[in-house]
């Protein structure tokens, strides 16, 4: 089972002029096996939503709730959330100099599972995941994200998704900055994850392009810190044709 329920979520960030409200009451439920796409213009608060679910210290929750299978997510630390089954593929994956990808992956897997993975199968799993994402096995010895191209960083995020096997994955603009080949590789990775039993996906994107490869069950238009409209995948086609203008003028 995996059910992520976001209810009336309000979030602020600290600015020089005091706290600024970014999320203004987000309500969303992702049931098991469902893929929800969140589409919205730049600055609408999509990353803020992703980071708030994952627990980034920069964001302050001022109201609402987030639960995963009934468990209060907001009271958990960042690592506890990950161990509870949440995964965030970041828009801008972070470089960690001097920490090798293989050491990082093994440390993460050990933390998530509560025990070290079996060495024999693990090495195979890692190499397989890297290969499927078109990353050379030599990435294992490189420092995490350091010197990776934009596309390599994104593919590395999806390799982690495959290996860490969360319940719910939040993908923050994993598609942006990818050429068409890389986009297909990433989409295939996400689709392999979706084929697993009972997984939820929250796919955040600015463009409709990726939705041709990852077919969502629901599409939500995100404007000015909240969901402006929800619908099926036909909503994406409508956005493709009309853009966000209609929603933006409504928000002003």
């Amino acid at each position: 089972m995996s059910k992520l329920v976001i209810t009336d979520l309000h979030v602020t960030v600290d600015t020089e002029d005091g706290p600024k409200e970014i999320l203004k009451g987000v309500t969303l439920t992702i049931k098991e096996g469902e893929t929800h796409a969140i589409m919205g213009p730049n600055g609408s608060g999509k990353s803020t939503l992703a980071y708030s679910i994952a627990g980034h210290p920069k964001y302050t929750i001022t109201g609402g709730s987030v639960t995963l299978d009934g468990q209060d997510v907001l009271s958990l630390s960042v690592d506890e959330r990950a161990r509870a089954g949440l995964f965030l593929a970041m828009q801008y994956p972070v470089e960690v100099p001097g920490v090798s990808v293989s050491n990082f992956l093994r440390t993460a897997k050990t933390a998530i599972d509560g025990e070290a993975p079996k060495l024999r199968t693990w090495v195979k799993d890692v190499n397989g995941a890297l290969e499927r994402l078109n990353l050379d096995p030599s990435f294992g010895t490189r420092s995490v994200n350091e010197g990776f191209s934009g596309g390599e960083k994104k593919r590395h995020e999806i390799a982690q998704l495959e290996l860490l096997d969360p319940k719910v994955a939040v993908l923050d603009e994993t598609d942006s900055g990818l050429d068409i080949d890389a986009l297909k590789i990433v989409a295939e990775g996400v689709n392999r994850f979706r084929e697993r039993e009972g997984k939820g996906v929250l796919l955040i994107t600015h463009y409709t392009r990726i939705l041709r490869y990852i077919e969502p069950d629901y599409v939500h238009v995100f404007v000015d810190g909240k969901v402006a409209e929800s619908g099926g995948k036909e909503l994406a086609d409508q956005l493709e044709a009309e853009g966000y203008d209609r929603y933006l003028s409504a928000a002003r």
Binding site: A54, G55, H56, P57, S77, V78, D79, R81, A82, R83, F87, L88, M90, P93, V94, E95, V96, V99, N103, F104, T107, A108, A111, I112, V144, Q160, L164
Partner: peptide, 18 residues
């Protein structure tokens, strides 16, 4: 950096150590 590592399930102390 710490957030990134922790978001992969690694505890804060383990993240600092890494």
């Amino acid at each position: 950096q710490l957030f990134y590592l922790q978001s992969r399930g690694v505890s804060e102390q383990e993240a600092q150590r890494l």
